[in-house]
Design a protein around this nucleic acid. Sequence first.
DNA 1: GTCTATAAGAAGATAGAC
DNA 2: GTCTATCTTCTTATAGAC
Lengths: 205, 205
Amino acid sequence: MDTKQKILDEALTLFSEKGYANVFVSEIAERVGIKAPSLYKHYKSKQAIFGAIIEEMHRRFLEQAKHLNIQGNNPIVDAEIYSGLPEEELVRLGINLFLYQLHDDYTRRIRKMLTIEQFHNKDLAIAYMHQYMDDPMFYFTALLKQAVDQGVLQTDNVEVMTLQFYAPFYTLMTVCDRDPEREAESVQILEDHIRQFNKLYGRAV
Amino acid sequence: MDTKQKILDEALTLFSEKGYANVFVSEIAERVGIKAPSLYKHYKSKQAIFGAIIEEMHRRFLEQAKHLNIQGNNPIVDAEIYSGLPEEELVRLGINLFLYQLHDDYTRRIRKMLTIEQFHNKDLAIAYMHQYMDDPMFYFTALLKQAVDQGVLQTDNVEVMTLQFYAPFYTLMTVCDRDPEREAESVQILEDHIRQFNKLYGRAV
DNA sequence: GTCTATAAGAAGATAGAC
DNA sequence: GTCTATCTTCTTATAGAC
């Protein structure tokens, strides 16, 4: 990795652990293996480093949204994986998404940084909300609506159904971000949640 | 309010909006209506102000836990309110708790401050987790278990049932903390959630 | 208890040699 | 591009008068 990218990488790690204001430029430089003044040859200020991280984040989020087809108003759910929506598939999909959010290094650090910085910066609050509320809700609404259309699940209120499906994911994610030791326990209860959800909505309401 | 308490009050407001590191002692003093050096007659340092806020928080949290009987392992749920657990009571209880968390000034500011500072300070992360995960889960488990024992709700997994009940509360609370304009919408979907939850579990699983 | 003046120190950023 | 030396600014905290 070149120095310019390594600066962003180490800065993100530090920002996600301590927050922007508690990280010194000299700390970032030390982790990169250079002295603070050298860092200014790559970025003109500490704020510029932060700005570059946010820019890359927006780029990645947009890329992901494009991939999930949640750009417009007509998400196209992968038919092969979700058609029929057997319970085992739903469980596998859910746990995989959950573990990805927790284990992917970039995703985890960005989420923690946004959590810390969200109240300083309106832009970051919006990004957080999109990434962890609106986009997942939009995606799962499409997924579950398909199951409802196929008669696999039954409800007259897909919005509430989707919230009931997704909220435990979000809640347990914030638990594990704070205390990674609770991951195994969280995965187990999440699996039970998905199976229970599937049973509850697998019959007429 | 005396000056000593007003300092804590204004400091909490600022800390909850910008985080500890981004608040200057002079800012706190200005809001109190004095100059920064005068503030040092009341607290010996900025850190001491923060410490006093945290101390008061622990005191209040403990008081609340005592009141809800979630101190020990045998919570006693108020029989008059919850016995029988008709849907309207469940809805009223849920919405009231939700709006209290959002509207009570002290609660809201403390929660936002903990959200910002939780990754700096292990102690705060634990306090956050207790207050917004473990204690509510414990309390609602007792409440819902009572309903199950009375045959009003049916399940073989009270833990999952409780998570499914509480997670939407927590999730929507974090939404409204970020964007208060979404409160009305959130209250509506939360009401729908409670009614739907009651229907889903009101029959054998 | 509040003020003005100021000390002490930290942290971001620049200058200029190599 | 990296370094050492240094500047500048900002912020916490103290001194001492009132």
